[in-house]
Nucleic acid binder design. Sequence first.
DNA 1: TCCTTAGCGGATTAATTATCCGTTTCTGCG
DNA 2: CGCAGAAACGGATAATTAATCCGCTAAGGA
Lengths: 188, 188
Amino acid sequence: MSPTTNAESLRADSARVRARMLAAARDRMAAGGLDLSMNAVAKAAGVGVGTVYRHFPTRQALLESLAAQSLETLVATAVAAAREPDVGTGLAALLRAGLRIQLSDPALAEVLAAVNAVCAETLDLSRDLAAAIATLLDRARTEGAIRPDLTADDLRRLLCGLQHAVRIGATDDDADRYLDILLAGLRP
Amino acid sequence: MSPTTNAESLRADSARVRARMLAAARDRMAAGGLDLSMNAVAKAAGVGVGTVYRHFPTRQALLESLAAQSLETLVATAVAAAREPDVGTGLAALLRAGLRIQLSDPALAEVLAAVNAVCAETLDLSRDLAAAIATLLDRARTEGAIRPDLTADDLRRLLCGLQHAVRIGATDDDADRYLDILLAGLRP
DNA sequence: TCCTTAGCGGATTAATTATCCGTTTCTGCG
DNA sequence: CGCAGAAACGGATAATTAATCCGCTAAGGA
C-alpha cells in the first residue's frame, strides 16, 4: 500500500488513527506554521512517532495529505469558474478563491508551489486543476479578455506569487487591491 | 560589539575570518538553497562552529549579512530609478532589477520579505529602499502613471510575490512576461 | 474461537543545533 | 623587541530534533 493512500480499504483502527493524526497536524499547523515536527504531531494525536512515519514517510507527504482537501475544494471552484457564463467573472472568482484558500491553508500554498508532487492523488488533483484553468483561459482568450500568451501554469504561478505577496504582512484590503492589480495586468 | 556589525574596527584576523565565513555561506547557499547548516558553513570556511555562532548568533543574522551587499545594490538601483527622467522607464527598471537580484540571491529575497530585520544595518538599508521607492511612486502618481492607491510597501510586497512566482519553475521568458503583467496592472 | 498478519508504539540511533571554555593570536605599551 | 592583557578561535560537549526498528497488540477472516 502506498503510505499516503486515501482512507479506502484501510483497517478500521488504521483509518481512525490516520484521521486523528491529520487533525492533530492541522491543529499544530494552525498554531505554529508550516514547520511542524513529526514528534509533535504524534504526541498531539496520541500515537507513537513510528505510526506517523508509517502513514507519512516524509514531511512533504504529510503536507500533501493535509492539502488534499483544500485542493479538492479549489478544483471544484475552478471547474465552476470555467462554467461561469461571464468569463471575466469566472476568472476573478477563481483568483479570489485561489488566494483565499491558500491563505487559509499554508499546506496548500506549499503544494501548489511545489514543482512535483509526492503522492499520486495530489498529482491527479493538480492535473484536474490545470485542466479547469486551461478551459477557462481558452474561453477568455477567444473572447479577447486576456493576453493571448497566458498559460494555465502561468496563472498557477502568479496565484502562488500573489499569495506570497499577501502573506508578507498585507491586510485584507491590500489583498483585494493586489488581486485587482493582477486581474488588470492579465488583460491584453 | 554587535555580532553582525560591519567589518569596521574588528581585529585583523576577525575581519579575515568573517569574510571567509560569508564567502563559504554564499557558496553553500548557491549549492544547496537557503537551508544551510551552521556546521557546514564552519567546515567550508575552515573555522570552528563557535566562531560562526559568535559572528552570527542566529541563522537570520547570517542571512541578513549575506543579503546586505545585494540590498545595497538594490538601494542604489532604486535611487537611480527614482532620478530617471521618464518615470515609466524608472519603474520598469526598478522592478526588473528587484526581481533579478532576488533571484540571484535567495537571502535577499528572504530579507525583503521579512517583516522585521534583526540587525540595524539591514533596517537602515530597508528604510533607504522604501524612501527611494516612495519618491519614485510619488512622481509616478502625480504624472498619472500608476494607480493612486499604491504605496511603497505594496510595491515591495508585489515584488516579493513576483519573485516567488518566478522561482516556482518559471523560465526567464516567463519572468519577463510576469514583469510585464505586473507593470500593466499597476497602471491606473 | 483461533490464527494470521497488518499495524501500533516508543525505545533507540542518527543528525543537527547551540553552548562553553581552554587555547591561540593579535595589538598596544614599556 | 618582547611582554601583558584582551579578544577571538576552535572543537568537545550538551541539548534538541529527526528517523528507524522491532517486539507487542489487536483486527478480521476461517
